[in-house]
């Protein structure tokens, strides 16, 4: 009854949820951690306010690299067309 491919699929869905939590934490942490100061006192990185650079630019690049890593290391290939492990 239980398709063994589901175990892999469930694990990958959990990874998806974890990635969103990490993404949100980086985005929120840098934006409001650094951005809540007085805008006139901001420090700048490559011309952008530091909060914006870390939250929206570096954070996004980090997420993309993390996603590539996760896909290469944890995501498994499987066949869709056969009946898989369906023993019925």
């Amino acid at each position: 009854m239980n398709d063994p491919r589901f175990k892999i699929a469930h694990r990958e869905a959990v990874i998806g949820v974890l990635l969103v939590l990490i993404n949100f934490a980086i985005w929120f942490g840098f934006a409001y951690g650094l951005g809540s100061a007085d805008p006139k006192e901001y420090t700048y990185v490559f011309g952008f306010p530091a909060w914006f650079f870390y939250s929206c630019i570096a954070g996004t690049i980090f997420m993309i690299l993390l996603i590539i890593f996760v896909i290469k290391v944890f995501f498994r290939d499987m066949l869709f067309d056969d009946e898989g492990g369906d023993k019925s």
Binding site: R5, F6, I8, A9, H10, E12, A13, I15, G16, V17, L19, V20, N23, W27, A31, F52, S55, C56, G59, T60, M63, I67, M78
Partner: peptide, 22 residues
């Protein structure tokens, strides 16, 4: 508003990972 728009990033990976293989 750019910060707000970056909330769209998960649409690129989350949808396929959750619906995904299942």
């Amino acid at each position: 508003w750019v910060l707000l728009s970056m909330a769209q990033l998960p649409a690129g990976y989350f949808v396929l990972m959750i619906l995904g293989k299942k």
